[in-house]
Nucleic acid binder design. Sequence first.
DNA 1: GCCAACGTTGGC
DNA 2: GCCAACGTTGGC
Length: 154
Amino acid sequence: MNHWLLKSEPDVFSIDDLKARGKKGEPWDGVRNYQARNFMRDDMKKGDLALFYHSNTDVPGVVGVMEVAKEAQPDPSARDPKSKYYDPKETAENPRWVCCTFRFVEKFPRTVSLDEIKADKKLAEMRVAQRGNRLSITPVTKAEFERICKLAKK
DNA sequence: GCCAACGTTGGC
DNA sequence: GCCAACGTTGGC
């Protein structure tokens, strides 16, 4: 099983929004970066666990856990001219963008902040802690995943 | 709101 | 296929 970290701006879609979706979960649409897409398309499997990270907010950090409920499918927003994620090059025959569907697992009792991640020896190498990192979907190791869960419950 | 870092686009 | 220009991300 693989582990992941996915960023989302809480103003746009927060962990509480995901929780409100219940068992149905939420398709992670709008990813328009090839590296991130490849992770979703090629490596994300049903049951994989992912850290939910709030970006662009007062205290950026990991706020909870979700799981892959459905593996990659063509991203419908890419073919919707009204969507801000619309891509005129997207076709049904040759879908360029995909999305996995995620289901809420848990919300941490507290946020594991980016500052904390950077300060922690075992976590400092995570992609999300690197300067200039903008990738919204990154793989994390099992050890990193478990470390963050442990910190969250301290 | 600033700005550094990065990915993408398009002219050549 | 290079690279400047541009748009976006996201911490601060």
